[in-house]
């Protein structure tokens, strides 16, 4: 198991190096000069040359990339100041340290993702299990049909609608906003309730269907019937024997969805005007802010890779056949 984790971590590291290199070189394929941004509105060729030198853009691209990688590992001096490891550079647009900007924004995105995931997992799995247990009944049909309708909605449509209905018209809930959980947990919670609910609505549908079908499949397994033949009670068999097996496809989908959640985060943050990693990514791409774009990109990739390692560890936890082979 430990060997497996080390091997996966090593693989993830290689992927990160590859992603950073590809992004870095792709950025320089764009015809526009990134230094123009830092140079400002009244830019002269002389000033541009100074900016080039300051940003290190006068050196060949591979050398720049090398400095970048060295900076991540050991830190480096940049534009007259020291940037401690992991140094992802400073923004071309506003001169702020990329790493600390990301750290600043990340808690919001993480809150959105984790909170949303908890809501849609509980609701989705619960509804799916109930539908499977009462397969063919009215409950099943309502859940299955409802999930199909909900899954066709979009965040940017549903979001404003909910805000309009529950905040502006009635005042039942608070306008979405972010307060760090360390400052005021209540405000953190009430500010994020609507984004969670909206994100969860869209993701829940998939998990309802998934959990229903894999639960039905598991309930037909021979070992579930054998457990009933031993006299184990119906709820015991349902939760101990069938449910555990049904989790494996769900964990798989969840692993794939982490990327989608980050992506969905962009839309959610923009829809509700929240300043998280998603907003940061969009803004920096529009501004052609290379260090910021690259930094967000690498950070997100690292996060997704980490989550996937956790998912693989979950398999091993659920299924002893994975753990012991």
């Amino acid at each position: 198991m430990l060997q497996f984790l080390i091997r996966r971590t090593f693989g993830a590291f290689l992927i990160l190096v590859l992603i950073s290199a590809i992004t870095y070189f792709m950025f320089f394929a764009i015809p526009q000069d990134p230094a123009l941004l830092a140079c400002g509105k009244n830019c002269t060729p002389d000033a541009l040359a100074v900016v080039h030198k300051n940003l290190g853009l006068d050196q060949p691209v591979p050398v720049q990339y090398w400095h970048y990688v060295v900076g991540i590992v050991m830190g480096r001096d940049i534009q007259g100041g020291h940037c401690a490891a992991p140094c992802l550079g400073v923004s071309f647009a506003n001169g702020r340290n990329v790493w600390s900007t990301i750290l600043d924004r990340f808690p919001l995105t993480l809150s959105l993702m984790v909170g949303g995931a908890i809501v849609f997992l509980i609701v989705g799995l619960g509804a799916g299990m109930l539908a499977a247990y009462k397969k063919g009944s009215l409950t099943d049909k309502i859940f299955s049909g409802g999930s199909l309708v909900l899954s066709s909605l979009q965040i940017y449509f549903l979001g404003p609608l909910v805000v309009l209905a529950l905040v502006i018209s009635t005042g039942w809930l608070e306008m979405p906003s972010y307060t760090p959980i360390s400052e005021n947990p209540v405000a953190w919670f009430s500010g994020l309730v609507i984004p969670w609910a909206v994100m969860a609505t869209i993701f829940t549908a998939q998990y309802t269907r998934m959990s229903r079908s894999s639960m039905i499949e598991q309930l037909q397994e021979e070992h579930v019937r054998a457990a009933r033949a031993k006299g184990m009670s119906a709820p015991y068999v349902f939760f101990r024997y069938a449910w555990r097996g049904s989790l494996i496809p769900i964990v798989t989908i969840l692993g794939i969805d982490i990327g989608a959640l980050l992506g969905g985060g962009i839309v959610t943050e923009i829809t509700f005007n929240l300043a998280g990693i998603g907003r940061l990514a969009r803004d920096s791409v529009i501004q052609k802010d290379l260090p910021m774009t690259l930094g967000v990109m690498l950070f997100s990739s690292a996060f997704i890779l980490l989550c996937n390692i956790v998912v693989d560890a979950c398999y091993a936890f659920i299924d002893p056949r994975v753990r012991l082979s």
């Binding site: 397994e221 070992h223 033949a229 097996g245 002893p320």
Partner: peptide, 12 residues
């Protein structure tokens, strides 16, 4: 049961 591989739960 006929097939012990499927009739025993793999999880316990």
């Amino acid at each position: 049961f006929q097939d012990a591989l499927t009739a025993l739960s793999p999880y316990y």
